[in-house]
Design a protein around this nucleic acid. Structure first.
Lengths: 197, 197
DNA sequence: TGACATCTACCTACCAGATGGTAGATACTC
DNA sequence: GAGTATCTACCATCTGGTAGGTAGATGTCA
């Protein structure tokens, strides 16, 4: 993964990074401006300079997360991997987060959905939509190439697979060995369903 | 479902009922003693008489929920339904909650896992264990009867199925038509995998 | 070049309201 | 009188958010 590691991150980015880690770990209602301020090393009031309200901050967070996710997906698409391996790579995105107790940001916010403002709810819906579209496209390609069959449709399969990944993450985290549990839950099923005959 | 509808519920039960609805809808960090007090019609301080701390309340909540869940599962086991229909009935438990925007209590608390005290974390682990055991047993029966095959094991299939149901609930709730979305995600897959040949 | 104005990114000090929780009084029943 | 179930009144702490100030960088124009 290429990113701007060495150049000093600007404060807004640092705030988003810290907030993201907290939401993915604890959820929307369980993190505060005070928490962020401690970790970033800035006064609580200064955060409002960058993000006027908590809701605004989280909205930006989801937007950035979706864009990052799409970049990661594009990287998979543009790789030279076989289609079945691309499905595995997609699942790996979820497994990787677990290594630091991180649930998908939008899975976490889906749990907090009832207390989120409309604007954030919309961003989350968009996230699920683009993720589903991308995966559906991949599954359809495999279906066209007769590597597997989608039942009843690539779209439904994509929805189901994403649901499974999100649920597996959540469930796995409450086990002592999260990553192993996740792998045992997800990969056998994946290999049975989406592999070259 | 038979329960003690008509006889007046005692206060402790009312508190648990209200708390349960709130946690299943908003999560652990987003409900308060003040919220409960308003809905039950009792002063905030009085709740502490029945449940000394919030953590104690939630611990009791999970315990009761697990027992209710087990009773519901036993009712399915003891029905005269075919095994494939029993799997559907199990999935229905999750679908039904969605009708009132209710996520499985333990799926919700799995999201809040990082901020929960050890005692509640333990209760949640137990919940997942007993649910998995029950479902695993059912799937194994179907496998023994050659209605379907479990791959790689009934245990893994059970884990995966529960993950899928939890994830589907979470995802579906952020869609406008939650129940339909859930059904479209879950039932085709269920019928493809667990149905009489 | 120097004087001024504006902008950026932070700060201190505060606010009202909510949070979980406690102490102690008060009814009501057996 | 003892026990049960509730109340009022209070507490320290945390919540997101605001008001207003400040140091330093940058721009502008005579």
């Amino acid at each position: 993964m290429v990113d701007t590691q060495n150049m000093e991150k600007n404060t807004a980015t640092q705030i988003l990074d810290v907030a993201q880690e907290m939401v993915r770990n604890r959820g929307y209602s369980a993190f505060s401006y005070a928490d962020i301020s401690k970790q970033v090393g800035i006064r609580k009031a200064s955060i409002h300079y960058h993000f006027s309200t908590k809701d605004e901050l989280v909205k930006e967070l989801v937007k950035r997360y979706r864009e990052d996710m799409m970049r990661a997906c594009d990287r998979i698409s543009q790789s030279s991997l076989d289609l079945d391996q691309q499905v595995i790579q997609f699942a790996n995105l979820y497994r990787n987060g677990l290594e630091s107790q991180q649930i998908c940001l939008c899975a976490m916010l889906a749990a907090d959905y009832a207390v989120l403002p409309q604007s954030v709810q919309n961003e989350i819906q968009t996230f699920f939509q683009v993720a589903e579209d991308w995966l559906s496209n991949l599954l359809q390609q495999g279906s066209d190439a007769r590597l597997w069959t989608c039942h009843p449709s690539a779209d439904q399969e994509a929805k189901g697979l994403i649901a499974m990944l999100q649920g597996a993450q959540l469930l796995a985290r409450s086990q002592t060995n999260s990553t192993d549990t996740f792998e045992q839950m997800v990969y056998p099923l994946l290999k049975a369903k989406f592999s070259k005959p």
